[in-house]
Simulated scan of single mutants.
Amino acid sequence: MITGAYAREMARYSRWENSQLKGFLKALPDEELTRNQGAFFGSIMGTANHLLWGDWIWISRFDKGPGPGGGIPESVSICAGLSDWLSLRDTIDDRITRWSETLGDDELTGPFSWYSAAKEEEVTKPYAQCIIHMFNHQTHHRGQLHQMLTEAGSDAPVSDLVFLPEDF
């Protein structure tokens, strides 16, 4: 289904996307970051927090490291403000990169199990599918952020994978 090289490329893409996103978020006033825009997670900050929380919960499952605590309802407030978010975003991107560098192809063909608080049960799915899900979840919510940034009068990050710089 996928290879370790795919996961490494997607981790690199995610870091690039997040590095661009950070610049656009820093350029906005706090009122714009927290203004409810009617999105599923409310505001730009709520959505950015949920995106970070999702990455953190999945990488904690994959690398067996510490997770964020709380569930989806608490995900919108994982960081009180942008400065906390910026620091934690770097930490989680570092974890995703380190984890991706350990992946070989053979292990991706097996199952992966975790406890899902959302379903309140143990879940087992193909490991490759779980990895694809993590990266797809990122892309989905960064798309929402792109729209909210544009609606706020901001420019938004370039999100085309084909424009990922080779040296990033």
Rank of each mutant, 00 (worst) to 15 (best):
R35Y: 04
N36F: 09
Q37F: 04
G38M: 05
G38S: 03
G38E: 08
A39F: 08
F40Y: 15
F40V: 02
F40M: 07
F40R: 09
F41P: 00
F41R: 01
G42Y: 03
G42S: 14
G42M: 09
S43L: 10
S43K: 11
S43P: 06
I44F: 02
I44E: 03
M45P: 03
M45G: 05
G46E: 01
G46F: 06
G46K: 01
G46T: 10
T47V: 09
A48S: 08
N49T: 07
N49L: 10
H50T: 12
H50I: 12
L51K: 01
L51I: 07
L51E: 02
L52Y: 03
L52I: 10
W53C: 09
W53T: 07
W53P: 02
W53H: 07
G54A: 15
D55Y: 05
D55W: 04
D55G: 10
D55P: 05
W56T: 06
W56K: 05
W56G: 00
I57G: 00
I57M: 07
I57W: 04
W58T: 00
W58I: 00
W58G: 00
I59Y: 03
S60W: 06
R61D: 05
F62P: 00
D63M: 06
D63A: 08
K64A: 14
K64L: 11
G65W: 13
P66S: 03
P66G: 10
P66A: 14
P68R: 07
G69Q: 12
G70N: 06
G70D: 03
G70Q: 07
G70E: 08
G71N: 10
I72Y: 06
I72K: 14
P73R: 08
E74N: 05
E74D: 15
S75F: 07
V76D: 04
V76F: 05
S77R: 11
S77V: 11
S77W: 07
C79D: 01
C79P: 07
C79K: 05
A80Q: 15
A80R: 14
G81M: 07
L82G: 04
L82N: 04
S83I: 14
D84K: 04
W85E: 00
L86W: 02
S87D: 15
S87C: 15
S87I: 13
L88S: 04
R89M: 03
R89I: 00
R89Y: 05
R89K: 13
D90W: 00
D90M: 04
D90K: 11
D90P: 10
D90A: 11
T91S: 15
D93Q: 13
D93T: 02
D94A: 15
D94Y: 08
D94Q: 15
D94M: 09
D94I: 14
D94S: 15
R95K: 09
I96E: 02
R98Q: 13
R98D: 14
S100T: 12
S100K: 06
E101C: 12
E101L: 12
L103T: 05
G104Y: 10
G104D: 13
D105K: 11
